[in-house]
Simulated scan of single mutants.
Amino acid sequence: MEESPRDLVRNRVKEKLAGNELVLSMAVRLVRSIEIVSIAQSAGFDSFYVDLEHSSFSLEATSQLCIAGLSLGVTPFVRVPSISPDCIAGVLDGGALGVIAPHVQGADEAARVVRAAKYPPSGSRSFTGALPHVRFRSFPAIEVSAAIDAATMVIIMIESAAALEAAEAIAAVEGVDMLFIGTNDLCAELGIPGQLDHPTIRQAYATCMRACASNGKHLGIGGLNANPALAADFVKLGARYVSTGTDLSFLAAGAAAKTRQMRERFSPPSFN
């Protein structure tokens, strides 16, 4: 049977979330070559996101990573540096299956992200043929746009007091798939920097979980890679998407652990 765009465009994160399964993700902000995607797959990650907000990656490098993710079955997202339509369209056309939008303060801005990420009639994204999502094959535009719209996720970060207050309204926006709490930034915005286990943060997660549950959306955890016990509490609360850390933090932690191990085991004798 001949493949259709819906056969080719699969977002495994969306499928796992629909089945109430745990999704583990990593952020990429150091390694620009496609080897990092193979490492993510070998390590068992479901997804990765290229962090354009906190890196100097080019659109070209971002696209290459996303295309590798499509090929290897590791769902590629991009955290965009701004919610401008051209920025969102650029990363999606390059191969991303979703955008993570930072600094959204309310439902109006969330709706702008949806419009930029979706094709008409749901949004205003401009259509171009030969997309990497369908392996650059030619299909009727209406089939491709429908398949990509169905697979593309819009993830809104909650990282300010204003966004937290508007969580219910943001979750109610049609086309928003997930609220993703940036815990460190939220702590700083709420005047409790670094206090990840503060009751206010626990309440913030509970507030967002209620907003997601009442609107059929999902909740994501960010910034808790150093506190897996706390992240586990929020998974029990209902969060299902967990950002586990960055390629940079994994490399730094692994290198530091190895040098400690070597020095402890092979410390040379003292010389007088």
Rank of each mutant, 00 (worst) to 15 (best):
T259S: 11
Q195S: 13
L224W: 01
R137V: 00
N184Y: 15
V173G: 04
P140A: 15
S25Y: 00
D247Y: 03
D233P: 00
V114N: 03
I39S: 08
P76S: 02
V13F: 08
G129V: 06
P120Q: 08
A167L: 07
F48E: 02
L65V: 09
A40H: 00
E35V: 12
R210K: 15
V80K: 11
N225V: 10
E15H: 08
E60K: 15
S58W: 12
L248P: 02
L224Q: 03
D177C: 08
A239Q: 02
G44L: 04
M209D: 02
Q41V: 10
A96C: 02
R210G: 06
I170C: 03
V235Y: 02
K258H: 10
L8G: 02
P268E: 12
D149R: 11
T183I: 08
L97G: 01
V91L: 05
E35H: 14
S4F: 11
P120I: 09
P140I: 14
A239S: 04
A166M: 09
V154G: 01
I34G: 08
S33I: 13
F271Q: 15
P102N: 09
Y241C: 00
G254Q: 03
R112H: 12
A18Q: 12
S47L: 08
V91F: 07
D7W: 09
A206N: 09
G175A: 03
Q203K: 15
S145D: 00
V144W: 07
A96D: 02
E168F: 03
L251M: 14
L224M: 01
T75P: 04
L30T: 14
A211K: 12
Q195N: 10
